[in-house]
Design a protein around this nucleic acid. Structure first.
Lengths: 350, 350
DNA sequence: TTGAAAGCGCTAACAA
DNA sequence: TTGTTAGCGCTTTCAA
C-alpha cells in the first residue's frame, strides 16, 4: 500500500491545508473548524498516517508515551503492575514502553535516564528496592512517579504504594482470630522498604494482641520460594513450633507449604500459612493460598493518573498515596488445632 | 551539574571541531584522527553527554535500539526470553525497549508497528500464537525476527525456535526407558504452533516405540495450572490410568502434580510427571520437576544476533533456526511401579 | 581527515 | 480559524 510512510506533509497537502492545521486537527486541539478537522482525519485514516512520535518528541511536544522502568520482568509483582499501567495508560490514550534495569547493571544510570526521557513524556519507576536509580532519576527532565517505595529521604517524587504495615496487621489478626498464638514470620529482603513495613506490622500487632514475640519465630528469607523452603524447617524444628506462619510474600509461602508437607504435616490442618501479594498463582495453588492482596491494578492506575497529572502540569509536587491492602481468605489457613484434639491426618510411610 | 542537557553541539564546540567530526568520533566511525577522537570522547564524558536517540533515529540513522514485541509479560516464557535478549543486546551495545501487545487489543496493529519502527533499528517479535501481528509486521520498514514461531505460510521473517518435536520425543523416550507404557499427554493451546509440534512428537514417538496411543490418554489443557489441575482427574479416573503424564508445559505440570496429590497419590512413586520449558520455578518445585529445557538464553541470543545481522544488512533473508531441546531429569519421574510391587506410600485420613 | 549544508517529521511561537 | 517561520539534535550527503 503505502510505498512510503505517510507524513504530516502528505496529509496536509491532500487536505489542502497547512501542516500546522493538520497537526492541530490530528491532535484534537482547538482552533480548527469542524469540517477541516473531519476532512483531515478522514484523509489521515485513508492513507494510513501514523504520527511519528520520535519527531513529535524532538520538536518539543508531548508524544503520549510513558516510560516504565522496572528492575525485573520475571516477578509477578512487576508484570502485574505493568499490565495495570498499560491498561490505565491506554485508557488515557497513551502508550507505554518498558525498560528493564538489570540488577547486574553497571549501567551508567545517567544514560538510561537520558534514553527514557528522550522517548517519553514521563516515567513510572517500579522500584521496590532502594536502588541507585532514584539518584539518577532525581535529575530527570520529565515527571517521575515511583511505585512501591516512598523513598522518604531520597527524593520528593510522588509515590504510590500499598499499606504494607496495615496489611501485615490484617494477616496477624486473621491468624489470631483463628486461635493461633504462636505465629511465625518469614522475613524477606531487608533492603525493600515495603517488606520491612510488613515485619513492623507483624511485630506491633503481636505486641498489641499480647501474643508471644520471639526471635526464634522470625526466619530470614529472601522472598524466594527456595530459600523459604529451606528455612521453614528451622521453624518446624523448634521445641515449641509455630501453629501459623506469615510469609512476607506469596512466592515464599509456596516454599513454606512445600516444606511443611515435606515434613509430613498438612496445611492448614497442622499449620496455617498466609502470604502477601495475591499473585495469580496463589489462587491456583493447592491449597489455595490465604493472603494479603496488593491492589496492583489500582496502584498502577493511581500511579498513571498521578503521572499524567504531573505531565499536564497539574497535581501536587510530592504526594504519597498509600492504598489499603485486603485480606483474602482461602484454604491455607484454618482454626488452630488443640494439641489433644481428636483425629489427625498422618502420613504412613514405609 | 548540567543545567541544560548537553548536545552534540556543545561537545563539538568545546572540542573545537565540527558537529560532524564529533558525531563520527562518538560513534566510533572511521575518518577521525586518534587524537581528535580521544579529545571528543573525553569532553563528552566530562560534560555528561548522552546521545539523543530520538534525533538519531529521526535523522535517518541507527539508534542502537531494539524493540521487542511480546503478547504477555506475565509468563516465565516471555520474561526469560526478554531477559536473554536484553543481555545479548547490551552485549552488542544495544538497548532494548519492550512493547506489550495485549491480546485484548483492538489495537490498530498498524499503529503499533509504526510506533515501534520509529523508535528502533529492528524488531524482535515474541509470538507463540499465530497472531494478527505477523500480518502487520509484514509491512515493517525495519528488520524483524520472530521467536517461537516459524510462521510458515504467513511470512518470510527469519525465526528462532526450539525443537519442540524433538523435545517431545526426548520426554517420551525418557518415560519409556523408565518402563512406562501408558503415557498420557496433557495438551496445550492448539493455536500455538510449538505446542502442536510437541503433541506430534508425543504421538509419533509413542508409535515408534509401539506404545499405546489412545484418545483417552490425551487431555485438553490450555497451558494453565488451573486447567491442568482439573483435567488431570479425568486421566486418573480412567479404568486403566496412565503411569506417567507428559505435560505440554511446566506450568501445567504443577497443576498435574497438585491434582495427583489431591487424589492421594504420590509423584513419582505412583505417577511420573514430566514438563516442558524448564522455567526457574521447576527447579524449586517439590518434587523438582523433570522437564524438557528450552534454551531461552540461547534462543534470545540467536535471535538478537540474527536481527543485528539483518540490521547491518548482512544475513540471509529468511533463515529458520531451530535449537535443540534438552532433557533435564529431576525428581518428578521415576521407574514405573509394578502393580503388585511392595510397599506403597499412602495417606490415612480419618 | 575534516567541514558545511540540508533535512528527517513534527510542533512551538508568532503572525495574519 | 489558518498559515508562516524556525528549530528540536542528529546524520546524511557532498565538498574541501
Amino acid at each position: 500500500m503505502a510505498r512510503q510512510t505517510p507524513t504530516l506533509e502528505h496529509v496536509a497537502k491532500l487536505a489542502g491545508v497547512s501542516q500546522m492545521t493538520a497537526s492541530r486537527a490530528l491532535n484534537g486541539r482547538s482552533g480548527v473548524s469542524r469540517e477541516t478537522r473531519d476532512e483531515v482525519l478522514r484523509i489521515a485514516s485513508d492513507i494510513g498516517y501514523v504520527v511519528n512520535r520520535t519527531a513529535q518528541k524532538l520538536s518539543g511536544g508531548r508524544n503520549g508515551i510513558i516510560g516504565i522502568i522496572t528492575p525485573t520482568l520475571d516477578t509477578q509483582f512487576s508484570s502485574e503492575l505493568i499490565l495495570g499501567a498499560g491498561r490505565a495508560a491506554r485508557g488515557a490514550g497513551c502508550e507505554i514502553l518498558v525498560y528493564t534495569v538489570f540488577d547486574e547493571d553497571r549501567h551508567p544510570h545517567h544514560d538510561l535516564l537520558g534514553l527514557i526521557q528522550q522517548f517519553s513524556d514521563g516515567i513510572l519507576a517500579i522500584l521496590p528496592r532502594e536502588s541507585l536509580c532514584l539518584e539518577a532519576l532525581s535529575s530527570a527532565k520529565v515527571p517521575v512517579v515511583v511505585v512501591d517505595q516512598r523513598g522518604g529521604t531520597l527524593t520528593d517524587f510522588p509515590s504510590v504504594s500499598v499499606d504494607n504495615y496495615g496489611g501485615a496487621r490484617l494477616a496477624v489478626e486473621h491468624l489470631a482470630e483463628l486461635g493461633h498464638k504462636r505465629i511465625a514470620f518469614l522475613a524477606g529482603d531487608e533492603t525493600i522498604e515495603g517488606v520491612r513495613d510488613r515485619q513492623r506490622g507483624y511485630h506491633d500487632t503481636l505486641a498489641r494482641l499480647g501474643l508471644p514475640r520471639e526471635d526464634a519465630l522470625v526466619a530470614a528469607g529472601d522472598l524466594s520460594q527456595m530459600m523459604a523452603f529451606d528455612v521453614t524447617f528451622d521453624l518446624l524444628n523448634l521445641a515449641d513450633p509455630p501453629t501459623a506462619i506469615f510469609s512476607a510474600n506469596d512466592q515464599s509461602a509456596f516454599g513454606v507449604i512445600a516444606a511443611i508437607r515435606e515434613a509430613g504435616l498438612r496445611v492448614p490442618d497442622d499449620i496455617s500459612v498466609i502470604g502477601f501479594d495475591d499473585i495469580p498463582m496463589s489462587e491456583q495453588f493447592h491449597p489455595a493460598l490465604t493472603t494479603i492482596r496488593q491492589p496492583f491494578q489500582q496502584m498502577a492506575r493511581s500511579a498513571i493518573n498521578t503521572l499524567l497529572a504531573q505531565i499536564a502540569g497539574i497535581g501536587a509536587a510530592s504526594q504519597r498515596i498509600t492504598l489499603p491492602a485486603e485480606l483474602v481468605v482461602r484454604d491455607s489457613t484454618g482454626q488452630v488445632r488443640t494439641k489433644q484434639g481428636g483425629a489427625h491426618h498422618q502420613i504412613v510411610s514405609t
